[in-house]
């Protein structure tokens, strides 16, 4: 116990640094994947068949393969096959590659949720907008979007909580997020070797963060309770 108390400040400092990477990856993914998902949705719902099939195949591939493999492919493929690494060196390059892979992966998942949301808005809403002389984009933004958001918040909340934990997969391309930081003390780092508890302690960070998100998303859900 004394040993842990002694190690605690050093470990927490290292875990904080790792958790910043985790948070950066989390928010970068969210900021990129939320709009990209919408573009993919429009692609897969397009009446232009080649585009719709193409998008659906991409979504199938991305959702049908493990994110871990996608991370490896995104990061190593350019250097392995094209001969030039494109991501830039060091931690920043790894972060960029991880963020791009995460954004792409999550955008595909989000796009399917969006599609469900869009299709769950009754046709009558669009027709009512049309006969009132509204344009398609007015109908989308002023009429359907909020109804769609209301319907997708529960499944999106699930995905977002999953994303918090999925960020740890980025350690496969040696992004030094919090799990990596915790594991470092197992092997030995900063004079602490063979310490198991830091790895388990990372769970506390995940718990607190996903707890905060759950509360915030629940609040958003309640905010849209005013209509049905």
């Amino acid at each position: 116990m004394d040993l842990i108390l002694e190690q605690f400040p050093i470990v927490v400092r290292a875990l904080n640094v790792g958790f910043m990477q985790t948070l950066k990856l989390f928010f970068a993914t969210l900021i990129g994947a939320v709009p990209l998902g919408l573009i993919i949705t429009f692609g897969s719902m397009s009446r232009f068949k080649p585009l719709s099939y193409f998008t659906k195949i991409i979504v199938w591939i991305v959702r049908g393969t493990p994110l871990m493999i996608q991370l490896l492919i995104f990061y190593y493929f350019p250097g392995l096959v094209l001969g030039t690494p494109i991501w830039g060196s060091g931690e920043a390059g790894r972060f960029l590659a991880a963020a791009v892979a995460f954004i792409f992966n999550y955008a595909c998942y989000f796009s399917e949720i969006y599609r469900g949301g869009i299709q769950s808005v009754p046709v009558g809403q669009e027709e009512a907008g049309l006969v009132l002389g509204m344009t398609k984009s007015q109908i989308f933004f002023k009429v359907k979007l909020l109804q769609m958001i209301k319907r997708i918040i529960p499944p999106m909340s699930n995905e977002i909580i999953t994303l918090v934990k999925d960020t740890s997969l980025a350690r496969i391309i040696a992004l030094q997020e919090i799990i990596w930081a915790g594991q470092a003390f197992l092997k030995g780092s900063q004079g602490i070797a063979g310490a198991i508890w830091p790895l388990f302690f990372t769970g506390v960070y995940y718990l607190i963060f996903s707890g905060i998100l759950t509360v915030l998303l629940g609040r958003l859900e309640r905010k849209l309770d005013y209509f049905r």
């Binding site: 009754p122 009558g124 809403q125 009512a128 006969v131 002389g133 109804q147 209301k150 005013y226 049905r228």
Partner: peptide
Amino acid sequence: IRSKRLHFGLVFQSFNLFPQ
């Protein structure tokens, strides 16, 4: 078509009010 639609108003069987 948009401006032409404005000659007509339509009341639907299922109202189709905007719930929000």
